[in-house]
C-alpha cells in the first residue's frame, strides 16, 4: 500500500535530529511538524519572519499579525524570535537552516527540481523556494511518486521551469525513500507492501538498487 500524506510526513519526521532548525514548505511538508519525536528539540522557521512556530491557534485566538509562510494563522513557542524578511533569508542563504522540506512537480536524478510554475496555467511565483533550495544544507522533497495521470515525477530531466539545480538530497514519496547520489537515484526503502518492481515502473529514471531494500518502519 502506498503511503498517504500523513504517512509521508511521518516518515520524513524520522530524518529530524535534535537541535535542527528546519523550514517546512506548504502542503505535506507542513504536516511533518505533527510528528516531531517527543523530547526532540526542533525549531521550525517560517520565512516570513518567525523562528519557533507553534501549533495553530485555538478558535477565536487567531492574530492577523501572526502567520506562517502559507499565510495561515499560527502561534509561537517560548524562545521564539521574530525578524524581517531580509534577515530571514540571511538565515537561509547563510546556511544556518539545517533542513528544508518542500514539495515538487518533478525531481531529476541529479537533484534538479521544478516546483513553481506551469507555463500558461499556473503562475503564482516562486516565493522562497528558489532561495531555500539554493542554500539549505539538506533538502528533502515530499511528493507522490507519480502525478495525477500516473506519470513519473522522478525523471532524468525536468520538463517544467526549474526551481533549482543539483540541490535535492532525498525524496520521500508515497512509494519509496530515494537518495539522490552522484550516480543517480538510489532506492533506500520501500513503502510497506510496495515492491521494488512497482517502484521501478513508477520511476522515470534508472534506480540504483543495492541488495535487499527494506520496508519503511513507523
Amino acid at each position: 500500500m502506498a503511503l498517504d500524506k500523513t504517512q509521508i510526513a511521518q516518515r520524513i519526521a524520522q530524518e529530524l535530529q535534535d537541535g535542527y532548525y528546519v523550514n517546512l514548505g506548504i502542503g505535506i511538508p507542513t504536516l511533518v511538524a505533527n510528528y516531531i519525536p517527543e523530547g526532540m528539540d526542533v525549531v521550525l522557521q517560517s520565512e516570513n519572519g518567525l523562528l519557533g512556530i507553534g501549533p495553530f491557534p485555538e478558535k477565536g485566538k487567531a492574530d492577523a499579525d501572526l502567520i506562517n509562510a502559507g499565510k495561515q494563522t499560527v502561534t509561537y513557542l517560548p524562545g521564539s524570535a521574530f525578524f524581517d524578511s531580509s534577515l530571514s533569508f540571511a538565515m537561509i542563504r547563510g546556511g544556518h537552516i539545517d533542513l528544508t522540506v518542500l514539495g515538487a512537480f518533478e525531481v531529476t536524478e541529479n537533484g534538479d527540481i521544478s516546483s513553481w510554475k506551469i507555463p500558461g496555467k499556473m503562475v503564482k511565483g516562486m516565493g522562497g523556494a528558489m532561495d531555500l533550495v539554493a542554500a539549505a544544507k539538506n533538502i528533502i522533497v515530499a511528493t507522490t511518486h507519480t502525478d495525477r495521470n500516473g506519470n513519473p515525477k522522478l525523471k532524468t530531466k525536468c520538463d517544467l521551469p526549474l526551481t533549482g539545480v543539483n540541490c535535492v538530497k532525498k525524496i520521500v514519496s508515497d512509494m519509496a525513500v530515494i537518495e539522490v547520489t552522484d550516480k543517480g537515484f538510489k532506492l533506500l526503502e520501500r513503502a510497506p507492501g510496495v515492491s521494488v518492481e512497482e517502484i521501478k515502473n513508477a520511476t522515470g529514471a534508472a534506480l540504483i538498487i543495492d541488495g535487499e531494500i527494506p520496508e519503511m518502519t513507523f
Partner: peptide
C-alpha cells in the same frame, strides 16, 4: 498578467528582500 495588461517581474523571495 496572462492578458499582458500587467507587467510582472517575479523574484525569489530572499533575493527580493535583499535587493530592497
Amino acid at each position: 498578467m496572462l492578458s499582458g495588461e500587467l507587467e510582472v517581474e517575479l523574484n525569489p523571495q530572499g533575493t527580493l528582500a535583499e535587493r530592497i
